[in-house]
Nucleic acid binder design. Sequence first.
DNA 1: CCGGGGATTATCT
DNA 2: GATAATCCCCGGC
Length: 202
Amino acid sequence: MKKLPLSFYQQKDVVEIARQLVGKIVLTNFDGLTTSGRIVETEAYVALIDKASHSYNGRRTAKNEHMYAAAGTAYVYICYGMHQMLNVVTNNEDVPDAILIRAIEPLEGIDEMLKRTGKKQLDNTLTRGPGNLAKALGIFKQHSGLKLMNSHINIYSDDFYITNDLIGSSKRIGVESAGPDSLLPYRFYLRGNKYVSARPVK
DNA sequence: CCGGGGATTATCT
DNA sequence: GATAATCCCCGGC
């Protein structure tokens, strides 16, 4: 298992990076406890022009500041007052491209993930959906701004073999208010995986 | 000092 | 697929 290099996140095409992240492994290590899972669903949010993005039209506040950080930074925010959402920042500093990790398939530390989420047993709800997976991995908004290369949150590749025809794409979830931009095919998922959060469109 | 947004989830049918 | 639950924090005044 190999840590993704910084150059991976520094690529310019955030949509392409989102596709490439499918099949990779996100891992956290807090208090000596390792939890990890394979990424099976992502969504790309494109700097400035994407109405679905928090940084649409250059909007920059304390809330979304970390979207403008250098490539390989974690951006975590709270949605609906209770769900933590894990994003990975890409591209150059001050270019607010980011990728939302929407679902993972649990690998290591399943007992710890069950403990964190208060679930009794492993089923497909443990890490399905961005709120659920962040909870299972122990990620909170305090972790926003951490550099992946140095911190307790990181992304790895292994020998998991994946071909492009295994990766489906669709419009993004829950961004209808973005108008036409909500139809952009910026969501990627591993076909047939039961941890994918919503029934893939087409 | 409020007012409200917000990239969700669980739980029904 | 519809709906209710849920709440912190930013930002504008």
